[in-house]
Amino acid sequence: MNERELLDLLLADARRSTEDLARMLDADEAAVDDAIERLEEDGVVGGYQAVVDWGEVDEERVVALVELNVTLDRETSYADIAERLARFPEVQTLQLVSGDYDFDMRVEGDSMREVSRFISDKVAPVPEITQTVTHYVMDTYKDRGVNFGDGDDDDRLSVSP
């Protein structure tokens, strides 16, 4: 079985049943199960999550993108700082990036106050961090490949040659 194709299918929709995956891959169900298990064990697949449009939920949810600048010394690497930050459950995504700042961090919380407090109390005091710039997300149009707008209606004729 083509594991890359299995990955593509899981990326598009991780909730498909093993039975359906097997049909689409023209493979045995047992083989698909084994392959998924292997992908998980090897750390290729780290987890499965829903893509939620919080704009559609009657509840406040605040997302902030935070730029972090850091200084390194002989004892401290990017990975050391990242490890420390990643322990906080508020941090959803943490990436080392090229450009004007070092880390790109996505933080989620139930209110702006909570997120602001988290950044000022937990992130800014980290000694290696020299600067934080916080961008609050105002609206989300597309997340992880999923468009949050109205989908394209199927306007095709129901039967055509």
Partner: peptide
């Protein structure tokens, strides 16, 4: 007239139909 047409009319009259009768892509 093409036999497709009669079928199209039948399909248009019916409710809650899933069509596997379409000869064009569902993508844009």
């Amino acid at each position: 007239p093409s036999g497709i047409r009669r079928f199209f009319e039948l399909a248009e009259e019916a409710e809650d139909v899933i069509s596997l009768g379409v000869g064009e892509p569902d993508f844009s």
